[in-house]
Design a protein around this nucleic acid. Structure first.
Lengths: 130, 130
DNA sequence: CCTTGACCTTCCAGTAACTGGAAGCCTTAT
DNA sequence: ATAAGGCTTCCAGTTACTGGAAGGTCAAGG
């Protein structure tokens, strides 16, 4: 299967699939004319990566997950460890964004948003003594 | 004031301050020996940017906010527009992360995390028909 | 047989916002 | 005289692609 069809079946852009070969994440075969050839297994791997990326795993996480996926003797604990770590990163990010949101919302709510120059948002950014 | 002191007063690394000069965000003068010279106004701008970045504004947002900060005749509506836009981006990001979190937490909670290979996380990533 | 269009190839550059490191100059203190 | 610390520039690397240019390949239609 050529890269265009692999793209359709995996939901990934062809450019991304080429990139995944470049970083040795999913490496296809080649046919005589130099075209990349994706086996069903390759396409499964692409789909796997597409889903994992969709869950926010980094490409390096995907690499680790993919090798666990291919290892019939994996320990589910190894998978869980990666996922749990990612989960805490997500939680940390949510907490950070919520704090930002709170501060910013407060400022926005107190800004008249008219044609006059006075603005509590700018005042806050300028610092306490300006 | 040299870059080291500007760094201390703004809370930004010297590397970052040099970068801000490179992108014409905060451009200092130079003394005879070629050293960057930061005026009190320059330092205020650096502090302003440091705070705005801390609130998650992009560097380009900071550039716009800085020019509004310097404009005594600005309309607060212009500031509010940037902040409101940023606020919705934060909200969107939070929503996205919450959705990811929900999915991933569900998977993690159902994974035994022991030394056996069966793993619902991997099963989910592999897709419905594998 | 030739051309057209849809594929495919490689390579280069750009994105956001820095960060690290190397090589070397300036200044001050010992 | 030299050592330490701060300053300079320039180059490369980070993450995960994305866009575009120049050109090869293939199947169908005139």
């Amino acid at each position: 299967m050529n890269i265009g069809d692999a793209a359709k079946q995996s939901g990934l852009p062809a450019k991304t699939i080429r990139y995944y070969e470049e970083i040795s994440l999913v490496v296809p075969g080649r046919s005589d004319n130099g075209y990349r050839t994706y086996s069903p297994t390759d396409v499964h791997k692409l789909q796997f990566v597409q889903r994992a990326r969709g869950l926010g795993f980094s490409v390096e996480d995907c690499r680790a997950l993919l090798s666990l996926y291919e290892d019939d003797h994996r320990a589910s604990a190894d998978v869980k460890a990666i996922a749990t770590e990612h989960l805490s990163e997500i939680e940390a990010k949510i907490a950070e964004l919520k704090a930002l949101h709170k501060t910013l919302k407060h400022l926005v709510d107190h800004c008249h948003g008219d044609d006059r120059p006075h603005c509590p948002i700018i005042d806050d950014l300028a610092g306490p003594d300006h």
